[in-house]
Design a protein around this nucleic acid. Structure first.
Lengths: 109, 109
DNA sequence: CCCCACTATTCAGTGTTACTATCTACCGGT
DNA sequence: ACCGGTAGATAGTAACACTGAATAGTGGGG
């Protein structure tokens, strides 16, 4: 996927996952699979799990252990109020950065 | 400026600086000042210098030492061909990420 | 029955990046 | 002589995504 994308994901992948969870609860494996479908081809297996653990530690998500028909139990994450608030801040920061970059792309030629 | 923006800058600040240099040659102090005007309020003094050194090491920019009337000589950086190529890749990666996030923002409600 | 494939999570170690804090250096004005 | 503004360098720290491997449960094929 390229080093550029990898570095860009720092800080944004977190927002991406929060945005997914804002739509519906999900578990790690599911999120990873979905990201890959969306074109984040090289998202490493372990990356999403580590991210989810961080989110949980910061109290932005709630967790429920759900037994699965295939394989070990799933840890289903859902966004709580604090997480929703944090997601709003993320969108604000994203909009800011996005606007500056858009300006630069236009002005640069 | 908030932790979110700080983390987002990892990977994008490099592109921002390259985009600036695509418009005109510039030196570190100038770039830092410009970024602050644009609202990147908390860009640390040393950050841009470290970034420019990295860009130089990777051969994406050319450097010219120019004496200044006030203070020590300036190191004026300009984008070379390799840098322009790298900037294009940056825009591609940015567009990709930007589209995914836009989708998520709309679909998320 | 055993191995394999698929599902699902965890973890130690690494590299990159931006921030903090501090230091050097040059000039002009008071 | 001192200080504020200009200009750059650097050592140490924290955060984050990746690598690679391990663990664990289920079901199907040989």
């Amino acid at each position: 996927m390229g080093k550029q994308t990898t570095e860009m994901l720092k800080g944004t992948l977190e927002g991406v996952v929060l945005a997914i969870l804002a739509g519906r609860p999900a578990y790690g494996y599911e999120i990873t699979a979905w990201l890959r479908e969306q074109g984040f081809s090289d998202i490493a297996e372990g990356t999403v799990y580590a991210l989810l653990v961080r989110l949980e530690k910061r109290g932005l998500v709630d967790v429920a252990k759900v037994p699965s028909e295939k394989g070990p139990p799933r840890k289903v994450y859902s966004l709580n109020d604090q997480g929703r608030e944090y997601l709003e801040e993320f969108w604000t920061a994203w909009r800011f950065l996005s606007e500056r970059l858009e300006q630069l792309r236009e002005g640069g030629r």
